[in-house]
Design a protein around this nucleic acid. Structure first.
Lengths: 142, 142
DNA sequence: CTTTCACTTATTGTACACAATTAAATTTAC
DNA sequence: GTAAATTTAATTGTGTACAATAAGTGAAAG
């Protein structure tokens, strides 16, 4: 192992992580275009399909995103009619994001997305599970 | 497995990939700040430390990036004096990117970065190898 | 009370990331 | 030989992503 070998792209762990995350999000695009959602909007809706409502801070913790990213995403989803944004009465610092009826309906269409994506990933069940666990182990420590 | 279970964030493979890529790039930031490089600039320099020169298209293939991303990154690196950009004589469509002496010197400082990052990743050698191979297997198919 | 402190969201500025388009140069087909 | 097709970068427009800052609110200390 030469002095500079660790600086080669091929010896980096971060690079395939960075590149495959990008490529897989790109793979989502045609499926998400059908729903008129971007990937960031999609994962935001995922949380709200499950939880119905949540304040911005908690949403950011779920998604590993800060308010600088979420604010424009949430405004966009609001303008599409999928969510509402409302200050909480008892503590006006909190902004509560809630899913609308129209947002709920989108869920029916969205069911297709994970199925279609599954077919794009070249890993078997065991490999997927292994990858999933390694990623979460790393993520928890970051 | 309910009808909607695949739409839960916790059942997604893409989400931990997306989130951990983001978090690991963020982890690089303080180390890269010392070199006055962003992550994208850093991986670009990595290719040039190894190859010395390359045209934009090939660079994009190595990095999985298109010219819309690379053009401003390369102009920034040029303004910092780490690279030069020059049209090829025999085919003026090609823009050839070359590392400068100052860019070469930066490599000495950069050696520290992978060492420092290695300490941030909570995986042992075997797990890292396994993650690396799964990511590349997926990436090749995307 | 009131002033300080902590908390939460929004805004601003910088830097990607990519689709779509444009522009310029070269290659090819005829 | 020239028109059409292809190749390569750059540009434009939209949408993240995050650090730093600002603004507003509520809680706590005195």
């Amino acid at each position: 192992m030469g002095k500079y070998d660790l600086l080669k792209l091929e010896n980096q762990l971060c690079f395939p992580l960075y590149a495959s995350a990008k490529e897989i999000v790109r793979k989502y695009k045609p499926f998400l275009d059908d729903l008129d959602l971007t990937y960031t909007q999609y994962i935001t809706m995922m949380v709200l399909w499950e939880e119905k409502e949540m304040n911005v801070k908690t949403l950011g913790e779920w998604l590993y995103l800060d308010s600088g990213t979420l604010t424009p995403v949430l405004k966009k989803l609001e303008s599409k009619g999928y969510i509402t944004r409302k200050r909480q009465k008892k503590d006006e610092r909190n902004l509560c994001v809630s899913i609308t009826e129209k947002g709920e309906q989108l869920k029916e269409q969205a069911i297709e997305v994970p199925l279609k994506m599954g077919a794009c990933i070249n890993l078997n069940a065991e490999e997927s599970k292994s990858l999933y666990e390694l990623l979460y182990k790393m993520l928890r420590a970051l």
